[in-house]
Structure formats: structure tokens, C-alpha cells
Design a binder for these strands. Sequence first.
DNA 1: CGCTTCTTTCAGAAATTTGTGAAGATACAG
DNA 2: CTGTATCTTCACAAATTTCTGAAAGAAGCG
Lengths: 175, 175
Amino acid sequence: MTQAAAGATGADGRDPEAVSRFVEHFAAQLVEAGLPRMPARVFAALLASDTGALTSSELGEQLKISPAAVSGAVRYLAQVHMISREREPGSRRERYRVHGDQWYEALTNREAILRRWEDALREGVTSLGPTTPAGRRLTETLAFFEFVEKEVAAMMERWREHREQRFGSGTSTRD
Amino acid sequence: MTQAAAGATGADGRDPEAVSRFVEHFAAQLVEAGLPRMPARVFAALLASDTGALTSSELGEQLKISPAAVSGAVRYLAQVHMISREREPGSRRERYRVHGDQWYEALTNREAILRRWEDALREGVTSLGPTTPAGRRLTETLAFFEFVEKEVAAMMERWREHREQRFGSGTSTRD
DNA sequence: CGCTTCTTTCAGAAATTTGTGAAGATACAG
DNA sequence: CTGTATCTTCACAAATTTCTGAAAGAAGCG
């Protein structure tokens, strides 16, 4: 019984059970917020890893999912810029990494979505008529989104500053 | 041919086709952002209505969906505070309304979600250890969310001010 | 150059989600 | 109190999504 003791640590100096508990719990929250299940689990696992980067097989093993599932999940995450892929030079292994800076941006970077909302609203204002009651409502909604878009950009700027001050520059975890 | 002419207006002074086009297009964007289909369509229809409020049967008719579907959709929307329900005093009809103020808040009011994320992260920091690399990453992530939570509140305050100035107070559409 | 190791793609099985019809509640009207 | 209009709930059918196993596709290494 070398590893199952209370709060025990695995071979790598971490308690795999505690890690798993956190991963599943946090992933569940992400799912509730709209992220597909597998991407959520993979992301949480990366977040909870020591180096902030894992290989495909490590992910599959830890989460008990097939290589195909890992592949699908990382493709999704990379597409929405929540992780980035790295190639290890001397190997065919690929490494998936969560990069502090990058994924904060991604979270707020519903920007593309915001844009499309704005486009749809502009079209609506035109086709319903800017002076109709509905048109006026759409105009105001549009103004809100434009406002938010600007504000979020400013907010992220402030965050970078804030973080710099509190945590020092760069990602807090490096290899 | 009283109503189908180009850009023509229906009996109610609006072009139903143009309205429908907007409704479906905007709803599609909302769906892409994660809203379930029916709620998205219902919401878009309300947004594009002249009074900003419709009854269940009006919604069902316009969107060609069953009363059950309307019921489910409005329940969802009310739950996330994107609309409110009103009782017409002299009738068993209920009216669903989009209230400018209210739904802007709702959109940014992922607050509940944010809170749960923060809770999960705090738990993770504790169980993985605040001084481990993973623990440090979680701490920073937590800080980010706390920062965002504060900032969003401030942003909404600024929005109210901004809107006041540009559109005058209150909802732009009243019965 | 072929072997080995890893990753991706593809088709299908399983589970989940979504919308409907029909029956059940609720509340006003006479 | 009975009748009627309106909304909600429930069980099921249909469509969509999700994950897996198996085979094909890259990329170093001998």
C-alpha cells in the first residue's frame, strides 16, 4: 500500500486521486458553461498538470479515453485558442500546452461571436427600419455590444498590468 | 395583392418576411454561441417585436412551433433572466417580455458560473498544494476570474451611464 | 528504405438532447 | 360551480451529438 494513503503522493510527487477529483470537478463546471465534455476534461487536466503540458498518451491514460477522443478534444481546444500544440523536436510526440496569456484572451475572445451578433443586428435595423420601435430596440442592443467590445479590450489591458504586478511577467509555469 | 409586394408591410405595419429573416438569422448566431435552439428563436422574436412582448400563441404562430416548445423555451429564458413573464390582469394569457436592462445584465451575468469556477479552483489550490507548480497556476487563474468579476460589475455601471446619455433612461420600448 | 511510433480520420454504436402530441392543471367568466 | 381558454407536464419518437475501434497517414530512426 504505497500510494493510497490519505493525501498520499504518487510516484511523481502528486496525489493522482486529488488531481483527478479536481479535474473532474472543474471540467464539470466548464461543461455547464457550454464546453463539450471531452475538451473540458482535457483542458482541466492540462491546467492541473505540473508543467502545463501533456502528451496525447498521457492525457488518454489519465482520463481513460481513446486516442481518437484526445485528438478530437485537442483539435477543438486549439481551434478556440485555449491551448497550443507543440512539437517535440526529437520525437513524433506532440505536446499540448495551456499558456496562461493565451487562454485568458480566448475566454474573453468571444469577439468573433460578438462581431457576428453585431452584423446580424445591423442588418435587422436596416430591414426593420431604424425608426420603428423594434428598430430602435435593435439599435440600442447593437450599441451595447459595441460598448462591451471596447470595454473588454480595455479590461484585458488592465489585467495584464495587474498580473504583472502580482505574479511577475510571463507564464508562471515553464519547463 | 395587398401584402406580398417588395418590402411590403403586413396588416400590422411590418413586413413579416423581413422580420422572420432577421429572427432566424440572429437566432442562428445565438445558437452558435451556445444557446439552445428554441430559446434562441423565441428570444430573437421578442427582440424583433414592436412592443417587446408577445404571448405564447403569438410566438407559436410566428415560429411555427408547438405550445410545449414555447413553454420550454420561455422557462429556459426566464431562468437565465433574459426575459420576464407578465400576467395580463383581465385574461389567462401570459406575456413574455424582453426588458433591455434586464437582459444585458443576464448576458454578463455568467456571474453564477464564474462563482462556481472560482470555488472549484480554490478547492484545487488547496488539494494540490499552493506551492506546487500546478497550484500556482490555479492560483493565477483564480485571480483572473476574481479580477473579471469585479471589472464586469464596473463595466455595467459605465454602460448604464453611457446609455442614459445616448438613449435616455428606461427601456426604449413601452406599451 | 522499410520499421516503428504516434496521430488523425472514418464509420458506426450508444447516449443524449430536442420537439411533439395528448393529457393534466390553473384561473377567469358566466 | 361549471365551462372554457391557456399554459404546463409527461412519455415517446426523431434527430443530433459523442465516443470508440480499426485502418490509414506522417515522421523520425536504424
